[in-house]
Write a protein that binds this DNA or RNA. Structure first.
Length: 480
RNA sequence: CCGGGUGUGGCGAAGCUUGGUAUCGCGCUUGAAUGGGGUUCAAGAGGCCCUGAGUUCGAAUCUCAGCACUCGGACCA
């Protein structure tokens, strides 16, 4: 039952000492990622990629359940195609990488490596949408995209990153709006119930919304250092792109209409989010439902008669019960294994040795609390599953507390600035809806607007920045 | 893009001030013992000292330029 919070992994910098360094240490020491010879482009190591595969599997299942189909479109976008929607191209052009040569020949028209695929989807939608009977089109694409960022950090900002981008077309605006909400809810549900990351759902301001979108919705999470991470977005485009790309369909009324469009995405950045939400000074802490390995069986005193057999029997039982379990029968010491799997964030460590076998028991050690319990081998499958659920809940509760304890109310710009400097987190205020107040908050308090939460509260009648009539309650914060 | 820091076997570092045979820890390989929180002993393998130019009889060390990584800022999922 010993609870042990001592730090055992000297290689990882304490998060209190240097959060940025802690984060980098975890990414490397947990063997999630490695640097490549190209700045901003990272190697996903098997353990890191396995997390992404699990994220993909969970999300893909939900997308299919809601009627979406996967497609794959080209990686290159001809410049002329990209340029048809003005706001969109202005937003993305500065960070595009261009292909200008094919073999030894210069291309007639240079091509952008997709920073996002709205334009390509539009070109395709134009070809396949003729009638209201062709709608809705509910497409999703798993791919990588490329944005030539100036600085990069593992998972949080890559020049090339993996994501899914959903693109849908609808006969009317209302249905498209519902789609953006439905997908935002899928993200929120996934973040909370699979990754144990509580979210704030809301709408982005015009300044922060996606280039070319009419409305952008977001799920915002709070990291352990009280900075915000936008963890999923969902955009309503109206018929703006449809007009720019000349997409029309014949309605039931036998006249031509422009369809209404949405797009929504979640990326490998989410992995960075879960590291910074749940990790501690011993390394990664993975939520059980996404962990590539949920339980690691460690035989103690392996050379002794019967230990390995008992450990394997235990492993087989856990696997048969549907757990992602593995065994480490290497000749590393007990202490090494304990530290290693803590660093890798494996939710449950299962130790079994001669003394346990005698007593028909094993030892379960939880990664989240370090708590050790001796449990009977009878019904071990259920015991382990219950403990994994309990770990999920524990992680969620802790993150939820971190979120709720770091939302502060401010009634002046000075107060907002002071609160951010002292506590970090989300500062909620009323807002007049004007860009100049948003700019002022950025310049004077160093915060951007995170979102206008759906759960609105009335804090006062006026905007604390300018004194004009307030329109919305808004959350401010420092974001990754 | 701006500021700080760092580039030496796979990893982390010492050496650089005051130029002169390449050092330590971890890891790796082999063997043995150990095994309930990074265990121990023995024997090995492994290095264009980031790149280029310069000074010098001689450069990891001095000079200049460049590149990369990293932390922070500005900008973006």
């Amino acid at each position: 039952m010993a609870k042990d919070n001592k730090k055992k992994v000297e290689q990882i910098t304490d998060m209190e000492t240097d959060f940025g360094q802690w984060y980098t240490d975890v990414c490397k020491k947990a063997e999630l990622i490695d640097y490549s010879s190209i700045k901003g482009m990272f190697i996903y190591r098997p353990y890191g990629y396995a997390i992404w595969e699990n994220i993909q599997a969970e999300l893909d299942k939900k997308f299919k359940e809601t009627g979406h189909e996967n497609v794959y479109l080209p990686m290159l976008i001809p410049e002329s195609l990209l340029q048809k929607e003005k706001d969109h191209v202005e937003g993305f052009a500065p960070e595009c990488a261009w292909v200008t040569m094919g073999g030894s020949e210069e291309l007639e028209e240079r091509c952008c490596i997709r920073p996002t695929s709205e334009t390509l989807f539009c070109e395709h939608f134009r070809a396949v949408i003729q009638s209201h009977r062709d709608l809705p089109k509910l497409y999703n694409q798993w791919c990588s995209v490329l944005r030539w960022e100036k600085t990069s950090r593992p998972f949080l900002r890559h020049r090339e990153f993996l994501w899914q981008e959903g693109h849908t077309m609808h006969a009317d605006a209302e249905e498209a709006r519902e789609e953006t909400q439905r997908m935002l809810n899928i993200y929120a549900d996934f973040l909370e119930n699979v990754l144990a990351m509580p979210v704030v759902k809301g709408q982005k301001t015009d300044k922060e919304k996606f280039n070319g979108a009419e409305e952008t919705y977001t799920v915002e999470c709070m990291m352990h250092d009280h900075k915000a991470l936008q963890s999923g977005t969902s955009h309503f485009f109206g018929d703006g792109f449809a007009k720019a790309y000349d997409i029309t369909f014949t309605g039931k009324d036998n006249t031509l209409h422009h369809p209404f469009q949405t797009s929504w995405g979640m990326s490998t950045r989410t992995i960075g989010g879960l590291i910074m939400t749940h990790g501690d000074n011993n390394g990664l802490v993975l939520p059980p439902r996404i962990a590539p390995i949920q339980a690691m069986v460690i035989p103690v005193a392996m050379h002794k008669e019967g230990v390995l057999d008992a450990a394997h029997a235990l492993l087989d039982r856990l696997k048969a019960a549907g757990l992602r379990a593995r065994i480490d029968e290497s000749d590393q010491s007990m202490g090494w294994k304990a530290a290693e799997y803590e660093m890798k964030g494996i939710p449950l460590r299962v130790e079994i040795g001669p003394k346990d076998i005698e007593k028909n028991q094993c030892v379960l050690v939880r990664r989240d609390s370090g708590e050790k319990v001796f449990v009977s081998l009878d019904g071990i499958e259920d015991t382990a599953k219950e403990m994994l659920d309990s770990i999920h809940q524990g992680l969620y509760d802790r993150a939820k507390r971190n979120l709720e304890e770091h939302i502060f109310e401010a009634h002046s710009l000075e107060e907002a600035k002071a609160l951010q400097e002292t506590h970090g987190g989300f500062i909620k205020t009323m807002w007049c809806g004007e860009l100049d107040c948003e700019m002022k908050m950025k310049e004077e308090a160093g915060m951007t607007s995170r979102c206008m939460p759906f759960a609105q509260e009335h804090l006062s009648d006026t905007c604390p920045i300018c004194g004009r009539a307030a329109k919305k309650m808004i959350y401010w914060g420092v974001a990754y």
